[in-house]
Amino acid sequence: MKKRSIRDAIVNTSIRLFYKQGYSNTGINQIIEEADISKSSLYQHFRAKEDLLIVYLEVTGKDTLNGLKEAADKYTIPKDKILSIFEYLERLVQQNEFYGCHFLNMVYELPEDAVKIKEIVKKQKDTVRALFEEILAPLHRAGLADEIYTLFEGALIANKVHNDHWPIVTAKNVIRKII
């Protein structure tokens, strides 16, 4: 296996396992076994399990933001852009392989002293908040972005608790009223 494909195998396996099982429940030996690599190959690319977590958060952060932007970019009117993001979220949470928000899952799982990881999560969440600000700027209602961001995060949390998409539908209904 080429050096790049070994790294890709490690990253892809880690992403899948961290998302499905959680960070704490995924061991290095499982990653090595499922990526079909040697332990030395893993440590040539990553010094520690936390390094894999950082890559996981970076990759999923980019993918998440791209998905939200792609949904919003289908429309020109700010209200439609915001609703499209929530419709994207609604489709996402109804997928069989949806296990919750990558970032919220990690925040709940990590100890208080995992400051570096929590900063990465906060940075990603701030990009979502900034996306709402950007979309609402033409309406001169950028302050509304915080409210919509809170609806977004609350809908994700309530979806995880109830294992149902009604929180996203409810958030969309509120958005229709406030924009």
Rank of each mutant, 00 (worst) to 15 (best):
I77C: 13
V128W: 00
I77H: 15
N96R: 12
I77T: 11
E50Y: 10
M1L: 05
V115Q: 06
V174D: 02
R4M: 10
G27K: 06
I179T: 02
A171L: 02
I77K: 12
N29D: 12
C101K: 03
T60S: 08
I179H: 07
R91K: 15
I178G: 07
N159E: 06
E34R: 08
R4W: 13
T64Y: 14
N29A: 10
V169D: 09
A35C: 02
E109W: 08
A71D: 00
Q95M: 12
K74G: 15
K79W: 09
Q44M: 15
I37S: 04
F98Y: 12
N66Q: 13
Q30R: 05
E97D: 13
T64N: 14
R4N: 11
L17K: 04
E153Q: 05
V93W: 07
I54W: 03
V161N: 10
R141W: 04
P78C: 01
A155M: 05
D164L: 07
T127I: 02
S38Q: 14
A145K: 02
Y23I: 14
A145Y: 01
A9S: 13
L57G: 12
E70A: 02
L156G: 01
F132W: 00
N12P: 08
N29C: 10
I175C: 05
H165Q: 11
M106N: 07
S24T: 14
H102F: 01
R176A: 12
M106I: 06
V59L: 03
S84M: 01
R47G: 12
A114P: 01
L57Y: 11
L144S: 10
T170H: 14
Y43E: 10
W166G: 12
G143K: 09
I117N: 09
K160H: 08
I178T: 14
Y23N: 12
A130Q: 05
E50Q: 15
I157N: 03
S38P: 15
D36A: 14
I117C: 06
I54P: 06
E50N: 15
G61H: 00
T64H: 14
V161A: 09
P111R: 06
V11I: 11
K122V: 03
F152S: 05
L110V: 08
N159W: 03
K125M: 01
H45Q: 13
K123E: 10
V121Y: 02
G27Q: 14
G61R: 01
E134H: 08
